[in-house]
Design a protein around this nucleic acid. Structure first.
Length: 291
DNA sequence: TGCCAGGTAATGT
DNA sequence: ACATTACATGGC
């Protein structure tokens, strides 16, 4: 009976803050409707509703094996153990207190790579808009739940590889269009093997990613962290750089490279997880105090 | 309106 | 090696 097919599944999990997780700038396709979150995972429509020590998931079709979703949500992770591994300092403690229940997702590598190629010097809201546009225009239509609006899968690399730069620029991505096109072609042609990237050491995997035009240290670390589960990867963006300088080095001026080296060491072994707590913490504070 | 956005590559010291 | 700048587009 555990294998019975159903459209609904209650995933037992404590310490899971869906709002924090889905608004923390790691994934860009989730939309909130009432108390629920609606999104597309592995080409399937799904609605997630928080419950007491659980997440209730509704799919558009009967599902036997829900591992595509539990893998994505990482509901099996022992969050307490990860948080225990964080360094004990005032900034980290404040972030953990403020963001308890924030999780890292395990995303599809291509969607993650493409999204973060589009992310450079864009606000998260704008990244969401661009991603939404390319999905609508180039993604495969998805089987929908009753009364739900139409939805599309994230476009496959083969699909984007066949487009012109002009068609991509029409999705408001500006100078990032050729970067996305090159990445799509590299994956479609097998020059970048995302399927087997996670077999490599983190340094080798990063080196492969950085070969792509438009992919540097930060974007490669996002992909390693958010898609490949390399929790030692620590993406340094403008928010994190500002936070590290303020919280840890208030009167020294460190370069990005120095910040990167400090953070990777200081927050190990789950530096990337710690990074997500700091990122969400300072960003929520920053947005809340903005006027 | 002008500043800035989950950066990167090219160019200038 | 390290600092500066161009790059599209749009939110606030």
């Amino acid at each position: 009976m555990a294998c019975a097919e159903s459209r609904t599944k209650t995933i037992e999990v404590g310490d899971y803050d869906l709002d924090a997780t889905l608004t923390s700038g790691q994934a860009f396709r989730w939309r909130k409707k009432d108390r629920s979150w609606i999104g597309i995972v592995q080409g399937r429509w799904v609605r997630l509703t928080p419950a007491e020590s659980a997440i209730v998931a509704d799919a558009a079709t009967d599902i036997g094996d829900w591992s595509w979703l539990t893998d994505y949500l990482q509901t099996g992770l022992d969050l307490g153990r990860v948080i225990q591994s964080f360094p004990q300092d005032p900034a980290m403690n404040a972030a953990v207190t403020a963001c308890r229940g924030l999780r890292l997702l395990r995303q599809d590598p291509w969607e993650c790579l493409a999204s973060f190629i589009l992310s450079s010097t864009k606000q998260i809201l704008q990244i969401q808009q661009i991603v939404s546009l390319i999905c609508q225009r180039f993604g495969a239509p998805i089987t929908m739940g009753d009364g739900q609006e139409p939805a599309w899968a994230f476009p496959a690399p083969e699909r984007l590889a066949g487009l012109s730069e002009t068609e991509l620029r029409a999705c408001k991505m500006g100078f990032r269009a050729p970067f996305l096109l090159c990445a799509a072609r590299a994956v479609a042609e097998g020059k970048l093997d995302l399927k087997n990237l996670n077999r490599l050491s983190i340094e080798s995997a990063r080196a492969e990613l950085v070969k792509l035009h438009g992919v540097g240290e930060k974007v490669s670390n996002c992909v390693l962290l958010f898609a490949f589960g390399r929790q030692e990867a620590f993406p340094v963006d403008v928010w994190i750089a500002k936070a590290l300088r303020q919280l840890y080095f208030p009167r020294r001026k460190l370069s990005l490279k120095q910040l990167q080296a400090f953070a990777t060491k200081h927050f190990a072994p789950n530096a990337g997880y710690a990074q997500q707590y700091l990122f969400h913490y300072v960003r929520m504070k920053g947005i809340a105090t903005r006027r």
